[in-house]
């Protein structure tokens, strides 16, 4: 196995594109190194992205906050603008692993690892985040929900990496939240994860909403019906019931060591209701 730590995105793309065999880009490495150690993957080349200065930036742009691929979760959660504008994304990213893992793991790595249970992804989906993909054929912007295609698989082509994610600026009276269910208080993989972002008008009617649902399907879902259940309402109990029902209906989970189908379907609704209440309270304050 070879290990390279290029200094620029262009070098990284070249290395990844020209390498033969199994090649992995590495951001925080908190998933990749586990798989490496257990023998699940046997890479011929690992390309470390953390020496690329450009990928360490959190930059305010005209239409949102751009977070670089190598920004560790702990750093994102210390960034005042990120915390103020995207509390759901921050709390979701902040739930990945332990304090030790937080110092290494990245939002983009979490996305590219393509686990259906990835914590940050439902929140990113809810936030309408846009991934900037760089590759041998240039740069393209892709909605985050289009990145994972199956457990462990992404839509990225050979030589491509995600350079950054844009968190689009929200209108006034917007709020977002992420909740996950785990059996313990920490250190578990989400049994269900729900990210909700919503916007109210001046009279408190929900005008826009996005709901991301994790760990209940092969990929994180953007649940349109769940958003529809909120839009046009005051996010009252009836709307929350409809939201919960839509989330439960959208869930098509499996039975596994972390939860049963029955449990996940129900909890998807329960958590959606709770997350929507938090997002609503935040929207009302903004």
């Amino acid at each position: 196995m070879r290990f390279e730590s290029p200094a620029t995105v262009a070098e990284a793309v070249t290395l990844l594109n020209e390498a033969t065999g199994t090649v992995y880009p590495m951001a925080g490495g908190t998933d990749l190194l586990v798989r490496l150690r257990s023998g699940f993957v046997e890479p011929d080349l690992i390309v470390d992205l953390k020496r690329i200065d450009a990928l360490h930036m959190i930059v305010q742009e005209a239409d949102g906050l751009r977070v670089g691929a190598a920004v560790p979760s702990a750093e994102l959660n210390e960034h005042a603008d990120a915390l103020a504008g995207w509390p759901g994304v921050c709390e979701a990213t902040g739930l990945i692993g332990s304090t030790q893992v937080q110092g290494r793991c990245t939002m983009v790595g979490n996305l590219c690892n393509a686990s259906p249970a990835a914590d940050s992804v439902p929140a990113l989906v809810a936030a309408g985040a846009i991934a900037r993909v760089v590759g041998p054929n240039g740069t393209r912007d892709v909605p985050v929900e289009e990145i994972p295609t199956a457990p462990g698989r992404t839509s990225l082509k050979k030589g491509e990496i995600i350079e950054s994610v844009l968190l689009p600026t929200k209108p006034a009276h917007s709020g977002e939240a992420y909740l996950r269910f785990i059996p313990r208080t920490e250190m578990d993989i989400a049994v269900v994860g729900v990210g909700i972002s919503l916007t109210l008008d001046d009279s408190g009617i929900c005008t826009d909403a996005r709901v991301g649902l994790g760990a209940v399907a092969a990929t994180v879902l953007l649940v349109e019906d769940a958003a529809k259940a909120l839009i046009g309402t005051k996010v009252d109990d009836a709307a929350l019931d409809a939201l919960a029902a839509a989330c439960s209906a959208a869930a098509s989970p499996i039975n596994d060591k972390r939860g049963t189908i029955e449990f996940r379907v129900e909890i998807a609704g329960t958590l959606a209701r709770r997350a929507a209440k938090i997002a609503l309270a935040r929207a009302q304050q903004n």
Partner: peptide, 16 residues
């Protein structure tokens, strides 16, 4: 065995 690790063999952590 489906859970041969501390991730899914869930012993109590400090915050529990």
């Amino acid at each position: 065995l489906e859970n041969p690790g501390f991730l899914d063999y869930r012993i109590p952590v400090a915050s529990d």
